[in-house]
């Protein structure tokens, strides 16, 4: 038998790795992928608690998270392509046009 807390630990570690990716990397594509990692960690937590309480409503919730993540990836990558057209670069540190 697998203790359900193991799944929660895995989700927490996955979230930490995703957060590290967002903070340590300056490449916008890697940052978007790290956001996907964190969304998946949240999904894993939701599904674990759904399994603990034998509640299939958690699966509907996870379904919505996946759909919103797909929308987020599509818009985020489109914005990156638009930025790349104008700036030839997707380094977050150099996108300071709206900073001051």
């Amino acid at each position: 038998m697998i203790p359900p807390t193991y799944f929660l630990y895995l989700a927490a570690l996955l979230f930490a790795v995703g957060a590290f990716g967002v903070i340590l990397r300056r490449n916008a594509i890697i940052m978007l992928m790290s956001i996907e990692l964190m969304l998946n960690a949240a999904n894993l937590t939701i599904l674990t608690f759904g399994r603990i309480h034998a509640d299939p409503h958690a699966h509907a919730f996870a379904f919505m998270v996946i759909a919103v993540a797909a929308a987020e990836a599509a818009v985020g990558l489109a914005i990156l392509v638009g930025i790349f057209r104008n700036r030839r670069n997707v380094n977050i540190d150099e996108l300071t046009l709206m900073k001051y």
């Binding site: 797909a70 599509a74 818009v75 990558l77 489109a78 914005i79 392509v81 638009g82």
Partner: peptide, 9 residues
């Protein structure tokens, strides 16, 4: 999102 992606990109 799909329409926005096409418009932006």
């Amino acid at each position: 999102a799909v329409i926005a992606a096409v418009v932006v990109a």
